[in-house]
């Protein structure tokens, strides 16, 4: 059985409000903290949906579109950079599991 890449895996996830282009992010990340004081930048590897990425300059970027609301970053970040909430059903993103 072929292993799946993360983007293939995320391609199997049903997201809410996918047709909406302007969604309200349910997680706010103060990447200034990530990029100034954080010694590990661990969200860039512990997030199961790869919402946190690091560019060539080692800077952390965050996007909420692929978030599957697992909660990992809320615990993993010990620098106070992650303001975590659940998505708004109307104007947020987030998941609807088909199997769960």
């Amino acid at each position: 059985m072929k292993l799946l890449t993360l983007s293939e895996r995320l391609g199997l996830v049903s997201y809410r409000n996918q047709a909406k282009s302007d969604i309200k992010p349910h997680i706010r990340v103060d990447t200034d903290i990530c990029n100034s004081v954080c010694p590990h930048k661990c969200t860039t590897y512990v997030c199961p949906a790869n919402c946190y990425t690091m560019d060539e300059d080692g800077k952390v970027h965050f996007q909420v579109e692929d978030c599957i609301e697992c909660g990992t970053c809320m615990y993993a970040c010990d620098q106070g950079a992650v303001d975590w909430n659940y998505p708004d059903p109307e104007i947020g993103r987030g998941v609807t599991w088909n199997f769960g």
């Binding site: 799946l4 199961p48 599957i68 697992c70 990992t72 199997f99």
Partner: peptide, 14 residues
């Protein structure tokens, strides 16, 4: 064990 299977969902939760 998983030979021939097809992944239909990927999920995660704390």
């Amino acid at each position: 064990t998983i030979k021939g299977g097809e992944v239909v969902e990927y999920s995660a939760h704390v």
